[in-house]
Design a protein around this nucleic acid. Structure first.
Lengths: 156, 156
DNA sequence: TTGCTCCTCACGTCACGTGAGGTGGC
DNA sequence: TTGCTCCTCACGTCACGTGAGGTGGC
């Protein structure tokens, strides 16, 4: 179970404590035996966790079949909202990925810099300053740190 | 700061305790004043947290400019690996999104079901059983729960 | 002067991680 | 018989959340 779903044993036991999984039976020595459909259940829970749902929200969604029509409608609403949030998260991650890729590309070039400016005098580098915009991660990670401790601009 | 980066005040304070942020100065009454570049820093940290990095990993990456060439190379390697992981995560989320969308579509149709089968006798529904494959979330959430408590198939 | 926002402790929480010490099953 | 894998407590951890009680600044 744990290995098939890419989880730890502790996670599987924890989900059992929480009532999310139920082993079909135990072996003589206490080993858990799970039904095949529990693996599907665990894999769905794993995906939903990855998508950022809390265990309480997941329990709520899993309870659909034990409850009535209004519960199903509620679950559809909850899932729809989550799908929208997923899309936003996907967008953020894609943006970050692009930003980081650009940054590592520039950094790799900087490391090969032969002007003797790297890494202390990058502020004087015309290759960098000729770029219209630097990715945020580049700005934060690479620009000189002298300004930081003594910065005076105000912003609460 | 907090609002611009979509974080709570507690988070900003916590990052300060952790040495990730440093307010430029304090007002007479103790209010924190931050420099503009701290906001860029905070926004990058926020994105990296969203991407699943731990604060320790983030601190490591932020320390690049204080350290030498080999630190920069190490940071590029670390970021490259994270970018790959991001791609995997993006794929998982996209799959889950498609799966959940299909499921909510089917569920919405089921709720409007006029055969009197919903929700107890969905197993007898030919509209469902005529589909070649159900999305996993549909299988887990919708199929009858009678099999669960007494399941006997073995899988450790 | 009145709100609303910020402040500092300090304990709580969520979802597991991590040993310690012991047994099971091929 | 020897490993490797599983078991049960039970305390630890990470990244904040959440009051309680108090001050600041427009």
């Amino acid at each position: 179970m744990a290995r098939c779903s890419n989880n730890t044993l502790r996670t599987v036991r924890f989900y059992e404590e929480e009532g999310i999984l139920r082993p079909a039976k135990r072996t003589e020595g206490g080993h858990r035996l799970f039904g095949r459909e529990e693996l599907d259940r665990l894999m769905l829970v794993t995906d939903l966790r990855l998508a950022g749902l809390s265990l309480d929200e997941i329990k709520h969604i899993l309870a659909v079949k034990e409850r009535g029509k209004e519960a199903a409608q509620e679950a559809v609403r909850a899932l729809t909202q989550r799908i929208d949030e997923l899309k936003e998260k996907l967008d953020v991650l894609a943006r970050l990925r692009a930003d980081l890729t650009e940054t590592t590309d520039i950094m790799s070039a900087c490391i090969k810099c032969t002007d003797g400016l790297f890494p202390s005098s990058c502020g004087a580098c015309q290759t960098l300053s000729s770029r219209p915009t630097l990715p945020r991660s580049m700005k934060v990670l690479w620009t000189t740190s002298e300004a930081r401790p003594a910065a005076e601009a105000e912003q609460k």
